[in-house]
Simulated scan of single mutants.
Amino acid sequence: MATRAPDNVAAIPPAPPVRSSPGTNRRHLVHRLDVKGSPYAYVAPFFLLFCAFGLFPLAYTAWVSLHEWTLLSDVHTFVGLDNFRTLLADDYFWNATFNTVSIGVFSTAPQLLLAIWLAHLLNRPLKAQTIFRVTLLLPNVTSVVAVVVIFSQLFGRDYGLINWVLSWFGAGAVDWNAGTATSHAAISVMIMWRWTGYNTLIFLAAMQAVPRELYEAATIDGASGFTQLRKITVPMIRPTIVFVVITSTIGAMQILAEPLLFGTYSLTGGPDRQYQTLALFIYENFTKLDFGYASAVSWMMFVFIVIVAAINYLLTRRTRGSLT
């Protein structure tokens, strides 16, 4: 039986609101700053270094390109776009541009195809996988000077190993340094040897993220290894392919050490400038102390890199339908 409280019992007053202490508010503020500000603090060193060593030199180079700027005089005359007008009429500049594009195409396209194929082979269960992967990375960590010196001997005209092998098929001695096509082929082989293994490991990392069930289902359906590569692997790693294509293109546009050290140390890229690249052309003008003109060439190379990278990105995106 329920009982009713006496009428003379006073009602219990509501509890007073809980007031946070100053220390609690301070801890809450610190927590919010930690959650909201930590990501910016972590990435801030990169942007500070980028502004100091990337953005500022880029802007300063643009300013120098608008002047007649040499170390022989303390007076830097503002000439506007005259350096760029001279550049567009310079046959040596267009020759260096052609050589850069030619070597870039010869080295990048076969390199990426070979890297995808090697990654596809290493993606299968193999014994001593770690040894194979480390071996692929060794050419990339080898000194570029050592690589060029060795390959210059291999492509030697009189005693080179490549000409010795070609002599088995009745071919005469090839002067790899003299011709445009031969020098481009030799330099492209050096670049492919250095970077194919590195790109293979990038593709391999992307392939290992592809679900194994897709390959098992394709195997049950009777798909061959090449069909699985074309129908499953390539479409699934398309973002990685886009990344590698763009980075390889940027690297190909900046080739310097290989043509500089190939054969003889020459800033002109051979007696007829047959393998002088844009980076080597910039280096040549800097050694002439013509900083204004060299800066203009640098900016033109930067524009070319942006254009070529954008074209590669658009072409790679459009091939999505044909790959699937």
Rank of each mutant, 00 (worst) to 15 (best):
A2R: 15
D7F: 07
N8L: 03
N8V: 03
A10I: 07
P13L: 08
G23N: 11
R26D: 08
R27V: 04
R32G: 06
G37E: 02
V43C: 07
V43W: 00
F46A: 12
F46Q: 06
G54I: 06
T61K: 02
L72V: 13
V75E: 14
V75N: 13
H76Y: 01
V79Y: 03
V79S: 09
D82G: 13
D82Y: 10
F84H: 05
F93L: 03
S102E: 04
S102T: 12
V105Y: 03
S107V: 11
L112Y: 01
A115R: 09
I116Y: 03
W117G: 08
L118S: 09
R124M: 14
L126Y: 04
R133N: 05
R133H: 06
P139H: 02
T142V: 15
S143G: 12
I150R: 13
Q153N: 15
G172Y: 01
G172N: 10
G179N: 07
T180H: 10
N199K: 05
R212I: 05
A218T: 13
I220Y: 05
G222I: 13
T227P: 01
T233Y: 01
M236K: 03
I237Y: 01
R238L: 15
V245G: 01
I246V: 09
I246Q: 01
M253H: 02
L260Y: 05
G263R: 06
T264M: 04
Q274E: 06
Q274K: 00
F281L: 11
A296K: 08
S298A: 15
F302N: 09
I307W: 00
V308S: 12
A310K: 08
